[in-house]
């Protein structure tokens, strides 16, 4: 009823997100993206993303306010991704959020992008069970987290030691002649393929490997070698089978490690987040394995898995409810903000 309205800003990569929530209720999720401008470069160009954030900022705020049916003066608190992410991109959002907070006379919360990916699920499935295990997989991150208290305590269990899972999708898509970003086209191609056609390696799954760390660089190279060998032999490349077998290797490792983290820590709730959590095979395999292990799986809709402003507003809402102190006026951006810093 009297829950505070939080305005959230997200500019850590190529999406300009402005979201508005009231408590756990999503009021608006406005998004502008510079994805198309990066496509011909095969990856996000930070300066192009930063310029696009500046151009899109005020119009995206207007869309969010209109969608929510509120005026800027109705906002009770402002939250913004302070890191991790691309410094130049982050700073556009941080500066904008600081200015809106100053102009509106409202508190400002600089938040962690990864924690916000967890918080967004509360908008769809209600308060998070705590502790939960969270697995965040995107083009920039692959992390396993233990979340005793989303507002104040998040612990890193493991992370990728080389490429993020989403990067592997992008690179495999290029090798297969599929468009950027690689996640959706690989997922589509894989539907027609046989996931057991090729036995691609499962990185860091040996008995002496770090239980919760990931490695996708070797897998990516193995796919490239396999495809190049076919091409050199003048044989056709079975794109659907390669996509399906690659995707299976990623989903297998991710879900096995997430379920193991739940078991090892006696936690029976798993939350997925990040753009790769939109992958259909990852979602299906996670459901299957969680059901078998008696773990409650929570996955936001694909729209909320990718970067957006609502997730930042959702975490801001948690911080306000928990009575966490707002950020200092000299808040900046930290491209490598550690995950145990939920807000700063």
């Amino acid at each position: 009823m009297n829950e505070p309205i939080v305005l959230g800003f997200e500019t850590s990569c190529d999406e300009t997100g402005v979201g508005i929530v009231r408590g756990h209720t999503l009021l608006a999720d406005a998004l502008a993206t510079s994805m198309a401008e990066h496509e011909r470069f095969g990856g996000v160009v930070p300066e192009i993303a930063s310029r696009a954030h500046l151009e899109a900022m005020v119009p995206t705020v207007h869309r969010a306010l209109a969608d929510a049916g509120i005026a800027a003066s109705d906002v009770d608190a402002v939250a913004v991704t302070s890191g991790p992410g691309l410094t130049g991109a982050l700073l556009v959002g941080v500066a904008a959020a600081k200015a809106y907070a100053l102009a509106l006379g409202k508190p400002l919360y600089g938040v962690n992008h990864l924690a916000a990916h967890v918080a967004v699920d509360e908008l769809q499935h209600g308060p998070l069970a705590e502790p939960s295990i969270a697995m965040l997989v995107s083009g920039g991150h692959s992390s396993l987290l233990l979340v005793p208290d989303l507002a104040q305590e998040v612990q890193s269990l493991g992370r990728t030691i080389d490429d993020a899972a989403g990067e592997a999708f992008d690179k495999v898509a290029r090798v297969l002649g599929l468009p950027f970003p690689g996640g959706p086209p690989v997922d589509r191609a894989a539907r027609e393929g046989d996931a057991r056609a090729i036995a691609f390696p499962r990185g860091l799954t040996g008995p002496r490997d770090a239980a919760y760390d990931f490695s996708f660089s070797g897998l990516k190279t193995a796919v490239a070698r396999w495809v190049e060998a076919r091409e050199r032999a003048g044989e056709p490349v079975p794109v659907a089978d390669v996509a399906a077998s690659f995707q299976e290797a990623v989903a297998d490792v991710l879900t096995a490690k997430a379920v193991r983290a739940c078991r090892d820590h006696g936690v029976d709730h798993l939350v997925l987040g990040g753009g790769v959590a939109a992958n259909s095979r990852l979602r299906a395999l996670a459901e299957e394995r969680c059901a078998a292990a008696g773990i409650v799986l929570r996955v936001p809709s694909p729209r909320l898995c990718t970067d957006n402003g609502a997730m930042v507003a959702a975490l801001g809402s948690r911080l306000v409810a928990a009575g966490v102190a707002p950020s200092a006026p000299d808040l900046g951006a930290d491209s490598s903000l550690p995950i145990d810093v939920v807000s700063r």
Partner: peptide, 10 residues
């Protein structure tokens, strides 16, 4: 960009 976006937002 920090100054420009701050002015625009304010």
């Amino acid at each position: 960009r920090v100054g420009v976006v701050t002015a625009a937002a304010l």
